[in-house]
Design a protein around this nucleic acid. Structure first.
Length: 488
RNA sequence: GCCCCCAUCGUCCAGCCAGGUCUAGGACACCGGUCUUUCAAGCCGGUAACGCGGGUUCGAAUCCCGCUGGGGGCACCA
């Protein structure tokens, strides 16, 4: 039997780290088993779902380098892949359930249910639906209808007398006592299906063999198992991944900071670094090794090797990993580094979008000069903003290197010597700067540091002579004079 | 409150299933040192963990029970 697995996203926000991580593992599983990867949009919550978010999610998954065989955009044999386009299916099965007495209409209003819940809370008892609509007489039903009430549909949970067992691929055997189960709602009074129903209908109709999802769904699983039974369908295999935690040790959510994949893209992260990083959360493919190609991950992936504990998302480690990939790309495919830098630069409005040929060529130079200081695309601005904008002097740097007695004169002299129309380049710059130091009888660093601050505003950054070459004679001379004036 | 899950350095993981080779290994971060015009990178070194209590056993990070702690779920959300 060939593996068919899916990522079911709800288009109520951008793809976040947790969702992306989940998608990656689903994808790894599919590809490792030469199975089918399916994307499904669970957009039954029409108040929060939007077309834009759906687009964005697809885009971000694609950006990560993951692909899918069936989905809302590419179609497939078991489509459509958007739940809002499958309503007739849910209605059909809901009716079937109704006819078989496995489900019933519930006329309780949200207010009435809220009151039930409140009462349960007051008694400090766990809430379960009272079941008072379970055996409505024809008369009562007529009366509710006459009142204009629209029924929701609930499943009728029978007494099992035995516990419900989830045989989870990562957690093992998990038992649930059936007395905690509720007659839960599967279709809203407006006729739209709820997650725990639509999900099952789709997974079955799409012949999903493996459901790989977050552990937040583990408690839902017994409910779903009951539904599979009511429908007479064999359930798929389940694998519940741990939930990624934020630094606050709470579930990483859209509202807790930079958790959207899109944000990482904008900050100049490399998708392959993100993927490699994902692999290191909840899984260690091999001992004493952290760098893997996607292909290696596909080969090594085994659900049984996944951890059960919730990992904390550690941005510091992601940064390091991204740096590893950036350095590697610098050697083998510098265009990739330029690419992520362009994204950042454009996002900050420093260059146009798309970049002009000149801008691109210039950024290539900047990238070359910055070299392995670039751990993420965003570093082009933290280390090299002065290549694109006027100098912003770091107060501490200015205080330390520009407010020295001889500095103003030194800077002015250097400007004078650099001016002119002779050859310009790294060597010229170095010869002139070192020559001046020697002539003054001072160590070269005593002039290099102030010059760096004058040119870049910072104490840290790329090699002075390289950056001078790229900055060009005009800007160098102008900045030296401006700094000399400030220093005086 | 009820249900479920989880538990090794600050963080991510290895080790656990098949107890001894664990004075617990790797990585990130952190702290030194080295290189250097600064920073980054690199290289060398360092600090740092088996949550607690009971068992079982000659022997427990590893097996069992309890506790504690953390997390997730209890919707006409997904």
């Amino acid at each position: 039997m060939t593996v068919r697995t899916r990522y079911a996203g709800s288009p109520t926000g951008y793809l976040h780290i947790g969702g992306a991580w989940n998608t990656f593992f689903v994808w790894l599983f599919a590809r490792h088993n030469r199975g089918t990867m399916i994307l499904r949009m669970e957009d039954t919550d029409r108040t929060r779902s939007t077309q834009e978010f759906e687009q964005a999610i697809l885009e971000d998954i694609r950006w990560l380098g993951l692909d899918w065989d069936e989905g809302p955009d590419v179609g497939g044999s078991s489509g459509p892949y958007r739940q809002t386009e499958r309503f007739d299916l849910y209605t059909k099965f809901a009716r079937e359930l109704l006819q078989r007495g496995a489900a019933y209409e519930c006329f309780c209003t949200p207010e009435e249910l809220e009151a039930e819940r409140r009462r349960a809370r007051e008694r400090r008892a766990p809430y379960r639906y009272s079941g008072r609509c379970r055996n409505l007489s024809a008369g009562e039903r007529e009366r509710f209808l006459a009142e204009g009430r629209k029924p929701a549909i609930r499943v009728h949970i029978k007494d099992f007398g035995h516990s419900i067992v989830v045989d989870d691929l990562v957690r093992g055997r998990v038992e649930f006592s059936p007395e905690h189960l509720d007659d839960y709602i599967i279709v809203r009074s407006d006729g739209s299906p709820l997650y725990n129903f639509a999900n099952i209908v789709d997974d079955h109709l799409m012949t999903i063999t493996h459901v790989i999802r977050g552990a937040e769904h583990l408690s839902n699983t017994p409910k779903q198992l009951v539904m599979y039974e009511a429908l007479g369908w064999p359930p798929p295999q389940f694998a519940h991944l741990p939930v990624i935690l934020g630094t606050d040790r709470k579930k990483l959510s859209k509202r807790s900071g930079d958790t959207a994949v899109r944000d990482y893209r904008r900050q100049g992260y490399l998708p392959e670094a993100l993927l490699n990083f994902f692999a290191l959360m909840g899984w260690y493919p091999e001992e004493d090794r952290e760098i893997y190609t996607v292909q290696e991950l596909v080969e090594k992936f085994r659900v049984a090797d996944l951890g059960k504990a919730s990992p904390v998302f550690d941005p510091a480690k992601l940064n390091w990993l991204n740096g590893v990939y950036m350095r590697q790309a610098l050697g083998t495919a510098p265009g990739r580094v330029v690419e992520v830098c362009l994204v950042v630069l454009a996002a900050h409005g420093v260059i146009s979008e798309p970049a002009s040929t000149e801008q691109r060529a210039y950024v290539e130079q900047v990238v070359r000069v910055l070299g392995d200081r670039l751990k993420v695309g965003g570093d082009i601005l933290t280390y090299g903003d002065f290549f694109f904008t006027d100098v912003t002097y770091d107060p501490a740097a200015e205080q330390k290197y520009l407010r020295q007695p001889q500095v103003s004169g030194l800077l002015r002299t250097l400007a004078d010597r650099l001016e002119g129309d002779g050859a310009w380049g790294r060597e010229t710059a170095e010869t002139v700067v070192r020559g001046l130091a020697e002539e003054q009888g001072i160590h070269s660093r005593e002039i290099i540091h102030p010059v760096r601050v004058a040119l870049t505003g910072k104490t840290a950054g790329p090699g002075l002579f390289e950056l001078m070459e790229l900055l060009g004679r005009q800007r160098v001379v102008a900045r030296l004079r401006a700094a000399a004036a400030r220093a005086a």
